[in-house]
Write a protein that binds this DNA or RNA. Structure first.
Length: 277
DNA sequence: CGGGCTGTTGACTC
DNA sequence: AGAGTCAACAGCCC
């Protein structure tokens, strides 16, 4: 499940590998991943030269001389660089370049490959509403985002219009490092806790971003990320000992998703006074 | 073999 | 505002 560390890594790889190339052809095997017709998509991007690749949250922004290619991998999938003669089996969209290489998009369940002309990028609703990147938010900004809201902190962290890039894989360790229960209400958070959360977002995403993403995702060349299972503190480690206190890690339902927590380190009821002195 | 689970997002309802 | 539900339909696990 690609989240900010993976998408940042893919953006860097794509920038290094693709800038300067010109799109020669596009083959769409799954038209429903587009926001326009196959014809309009091809007309928009064929003959475009790639200028830059960046990301905002889980979206890749490929800037070309003819507008933007916007990619979201949804619940999973790969972006691979290959040659026309040696394509991977699974593929839903193929972008051919003028030098015989091609970019293959595969979505596990579904994903998006959208086209926006230069002057329509601001009208692309799914990206226009994105909040600031999770790795560029300061404690002060986080405080502003949290202020006046009443919902659970987990739903805020996953709300891409407030904070872009966190998904349900990295969130377990972020909440654990902030010592916050996922269902804590935002209006009960004090300044110290918000500051801890801002630090935890950084600590939860930056190491993986520096290692090319998580081990369960592959890069443009098919190589898995170097952020390993042992680098994860409590996510997906139900029944194992909490690294901070030894309590058994639990998996709890939080709305329609689950969260792994340490019930000792992340109590839901915030005692006004700490027990034990 | 089959049922349950999992990730993202928008649309929709209450 | 926010919580809940659903739909899109692959692949792994038991």
């Amino acid at each position: 499940m690609p989240e900010l560390p993976e998408i940042m890594s893919r953006a860097g790889e794509m920038k290094r590998a693709l800038v300067g190339k010109t799109i020669a052809d596009i083959e769409v095997l799954q038209p429903k991943c587009l926001n326009v017709t196959v014809k309009a998509f091809r007309r928009g991007l064929i003959e475009a030269r790639l200028l830059d690749v960046t990301c905002r949250g889980k979206w890749l922004f490929v800037e070309t001389t003819q507008g933007w290619l916007l990619i979201n991998l949804g619940m999973g999938g790969e972006i691979l660089l290959a040659r026309r003669g040696a394509l991977p089996k699974k593929r839903r969209l193929i972008v051919d370049f003028d030098d015989g290489t091609c970019l293959i998009l595969n979505f596990w369940w579904f994903g998006y490959a959208h086209y926006a002309p230069h002057d329509k990028l601001g009208k692309h609703a799914m990206t226009a509403k994105l909040g600031p990147n999770a790795l560029s938010i300061t404690a002060r900004e986080l405080n502003e985002i949290v202020k006046g809201r009443r919902g659970a902190i987990k739903s805020l962290l996953l709300d891409q219009t407030r904070i872009a890039g966190i998904g349900n894989a990295y969130i377990h360790d972020i909440l654990f490092m902030a010592r916050l229960h996922p269902l804590r209400k935002m209006h009960t958070l004090n300044e110290r806790e918000i500051e801890a959360l801002a630090k935890a977002i950084e600590k939860g995403l930056r190491p993986s971003a520096g290692k090319g993403g998580a081990f369960y995702e592959v890069n443009l060349y098919g190589k898995p990320g170097r952020f390993k299972a042992r680098d994860i503190l409590i996510g997906y480690k139900e029944g194992k000992a909490c690294p901070a206190c030894g309590t058994r890690i639990e998996k709890i339902k939080t709305g329609s998703t689950s969260t792994f927590i340490c019930p000792t380190c992340q109590p839901l009821k915030l005692g006004k006074r700490k027990r034990k002195k």
